[in-house]
Design a protein around this nucleic acid. Structure first.
Length: 791
DNA sequence: TGTTCGCTTGTTTTT
DNA sequence: CAAGCGAACA
């Protein structure tokens, strides 16, 4: 391999690093995928490492797919051939282990994977079953606590023993019940996947040893996004004798809320003593202006190791910062600017990035109106649409009879005469029998169910049994087709209102996804969709003990990947693990997506919209660590741009249907003015004159200590006094009149009763108030909705 | 039993 | 503004 021709010296150092742990701090656009893929190829070609001894783990299927393709190309494999290097996501890695050895940690082979919606539904039931008040112990809050716990490998038992205070003690009960219901249904949630894989490797010594003996080189991408459990999984998989290459960038860590531990990268050497650290600071993506501006921004963060990116691309254009009126005006400006740039760039070379999915609506409207082709990442995610979830639920019930959650979902969908009363009787009977709903359906006597209800249940049972028989012999598309027909779903969607038509279209798309999946899976090598994990561990064995030790030499026996999973399970796993970004059509016009989904992507022309206080940083993320993460989020957005970067900010915006005055993001003053070119929309309504009220423009604030001349407000956008935000505009909603809430104050809430204010973050309508209520403990409220009164 | 209507409620990011 | 929920109606 002619590395000097392909890579810069820093990259070469990381690629040709010998054995032991290394951390590669790879700045945005510094070629980290290049480093990972070349290292894999180098290990194989130059060091003679067998491919199955190498694994690369990423966070998205898309990243994994690209990586795999590049590795295979570097290795000079013929078109379509795949090396035995494992390339896949953390979740797929864990899932693979669980599909094989899950029984050792309490899940049976056909287990179902719950998505967020399923989890919420299950948690609601858990809270109900525990007779907790869902308005104080909200399913969302408990779920978030449970997720945190699982990410830190804390189970219901330890959670309960460490719980203190009103909320936690109740959450502990809900957690316990939730987990019980989950396992009863033979289900696993997202966080369980990692946690159970860890448990499996910790507890099954022989399996762990075999894994460690086999796997010598592990490369982990986006290391800054790993959580505690994932770090543990990495340690267990690689063992003391293997070599870990962790690649990441602390400035691009944007998943704290999902448990990502920044310390995993900041304090890498603590977990892996003697680790070598390489820094990649040469950027191949952006202009120097973009690097300087984004670098200046992120240098305001405390939590970083620090690096300085450089490029030989030259300064390039300045960054356009535009102040718009409202979101419609913002969208028009962006669209107009895109039209101008379309002379030199194709639509697909442009992207609009936003903080929240809700922002895409106005943008979409305008792009539609102007007939600018675009593709939206996310929105309502395909596999979360009700009609798709219904069909998936049918498939799950076929595969996993104990899946009570899915069974409940489809029991009367489409409507088949199993009403509330009938369903309730069935649930109670199952409860009394202590068995799964499906078994109750088969054996229960169903007292007190009407004749109609009884026969409806019977028909449903026969339907499922018949489909299950079919599933045992027919291929996936055939089964799905039959599900659609036999269940009456086809009829349900054959109405000709627009809504039914759209849903039918989705169902068709789902069916064709199944067909495609089926064809790919039938080929000798793996479907690109799925990603291989086969080579990793010992071959599957039908005897229940993977532990007995006769496998000398099985190191060299690569496994037909996934061959021990049936196609239906593989398809369901695929459906559970695809993400929005995986389906991004880069050839379908302008891309519109959230900042989170944009990570890892790059575009010649980038717009980051909605740079307003409360949106970016989001009003829900105001704690110091959260604020730093919001800053990183903007940093990630800015560094997606290759040549032209635009930032926009509105003076008012519709939020939840009401116009709200907005202030420019506090991050804007952190950008060096030298790199900016600022414009303001005519539609931007002047509010009031800062000179009269003695309020600084936000740029002025930086230099407010000195009476230095500052840029004129009209060119920079005027920021009104924060204390009076939302009160001066006739368009603003009526604020809580006259109630200035401050800490220590005693207040009364219309439904939550009396409490004491603990903290106030922000101000005006978007202020977030933390109150400790006598009855329900600590709650965070939005001032706009709180309706608090002194008391 | 199934559908529709009006009410309340509450807002981030996603493997 | 929307989603979600319960109650009233067909």
């Amino acid at each position: 391999m002619d590395l000097p021709r392909l890579l810069n010296p820093e990259q070469i150092a990381a690629v040709t690093f010998g054995d032991g742990p290394q951390l590669v701090l790879a700045g945005a656009g510094s070629g980290k995928t290049r480093v990972i893929t070349h290292r894999i190829a180098w290990l194989i070609a130059e060091r003679g490492v067998e491919p199955y001894r190498i694994a690369a783990v990423t966070f998205t299927n898309k990243a994994a797919g690209e990586m795999r393709e590049r590795v295979d190309r570097l290795l000079g494999l013929p078109e379509g051939a795949r090396s035995e290097v494992f390339v896949g996501t953390f979740h797929r890695f864990a899932l693979r282990l669980l599909r094989r050895y899950g029984e050792r940690v309490g899940v049976s082979p056909g287990f179902s994977i719950l998505d967020t919606q399923d989890q919420l539904a299950l948690m609601k039931r858990a809270i109900e079953d525990e007779d907790l008040d869902p308005s104080t112990v909200t399913p969302r809050a408990v779920l978030s606590a449970v997720s945190d716990a699982k990410n830190r490998l804390i189970g219901p038992g330890r959670f309960a023993s460490e719980a203190s205070g009103f909320f936690e003690t109740r959450a502990a009960r809900a957690f316990h019940r939730y987990q019980k219901l989950l396992r009863q249904a033979n289900g696993v949630d997202f966080d369980d996947m990692i946690a159970l894989a860890v448990q499996l490797l910790e507890q099954e010594e022989v399996l762990r040893q075999r894994m460690q003996r086999r796997l010598r080189y592990l490369l982990v991408d986006e290391f800054q996004d790993t959580n505690f459990a994932q770090l543990r999984l990495v340690e267990l998989a690689i063992g003391a004798g293997g070599s870990l290459t962790a690649v990441g960038d602390e400035d691009q860590s944007i998943y704290r809320w999902r448990g990502a531990e920044l310390d995993n990268i900041l304090r890498f050497e603590d977990a892996f003593p003697g680790a070598t650290v390489h820094k990649l600071e040469r950027n191949y993506r952006s202009t120097q202006n973009i690097l300087d501006a984004s670098g200046a921004l992120v240098s305001n963060n405390e939590q970083r190791r620090g690096k300085r990116l450089w490029t030989d691309h030259g300064p390039g254009e300045r960054i356009a910062l535009h102040y718009a009126g409202d979101e419609g005006d913002e969208a028009r400006w962006i669209a107009a600017r895109m039209r101008q740039l379309h002379d030199s760039y194709t639509w697909t070379e442009m992207a609009i990035l936003v903080r929240t999915n809700a922002q895409t609506r106005a943008l979409e409207d305008e792009l539609l109106r102007q007939r600018i082709p675009y593709s939206l990442v996310a929105g309502v995610r395909f596999y979360e649409r009700a009609e798709i979830k219904d069909l998936v639920a049918y498939l799950r019930v076929l595969r996993n009879p104990r899946d009570n959650l899915s069974l409940r979902r489809i029991l009367n969908q489409p409507p088949r005469g199993i009403g509330k009363a009938t369903a309730q009787a069935l649930f109670e009977e199952a409860e009394a029998m202590g068995s799964a709903l499906w078994d109750a359906l088969r054996f229960a006597r169903l007292r007190g169910v009407s004749q109609r209800g009884r026969s409806a249940l019977l028909r449903f049972r026969e339907l499922i049994e018949q489909l299950r028989t079919l599933a045992a012999t027919q291929d996936l598309p055939t089964v799905l087709q039959e599900v659609i027909e036999a269940t009456g779903y086809a009829r349900l969607l054959s109405k000709d209102d627009a809504d039914a038509q759209a849903r039918l279209e989705n169902v068709r798309e789902f069916l064709s996804a199944a067909q495609e999946f089926n064809e790919d899976a039938g080929a000798t090598d793996l479907p690109a969709l799925v990603g291989s994990i086969g080579a990793l561990e010992a071959p599957p064995r039908r005897d229940p003990d993977p532990g007995d030790d006769e496998e000398d030499g099985d190191d060299a026996s690569p496994l037909g990947p996934e061959e021990d999973s049936d196609p239906l399970t593989m398809f369901l796993d695929y459906v559970s693990l695809v993400s929005d970004i995986d389906g991004l059509q880069t050839d379908a016009g302008v891309s519109v997506m959230t900042l989170h989904s944009a990570k890892g992507l790059e575009f010649p022309v980038v717009f980051v919209a909605g740079l307003e206080d409360g949106l970016l940083p989001h009003f829900n993320s105001q704690a110091p660590e959260e604020l730093e993460e919001e800053r990183r989020l903007l940093y990630v957005g800015m560094t997606r741009a290759e040549r032209r970067l635009h930032l926009t900010s509105c003076s008012r915006r519709r939020i939840a249907g009401r116009y709200q005055d907005q202030e420019p993001s506090p991050f804007l003053p952190e950008l060096p003015e030298a790199q900016l070119e600022i414009t303001e929309s005519a539609a931007r309504m002047p509010r009031y004159d800062s000179r009269l009220t003695g309020v600084h423009s936000f740029f002025g604030d930086r230099t407010s200590a000195a009476p230095a001349p500052r840029p004129t407000p009209s060119s920079l956008g005027v920021a009104p006094a924060s204390a009076s935000r939302g009160r001066t505009s006739p368009l603003a909603p009526a604020p809580n009149p006259g109630v200035a809430v401050r800490p220590q104050m005693s207040v009364r809430h219309p439904t939550l009763g009396r409490g004491v204010v603990l903290a106030v973050e922000g101000d005006g309508d978007s202020a977030k108030i933390t109150v400790f209520f006598d009855r329900s403990g600590k709650r965070r409220l939005l001032a706009k909705y709180a309706g608090l009164e002194p008391g």
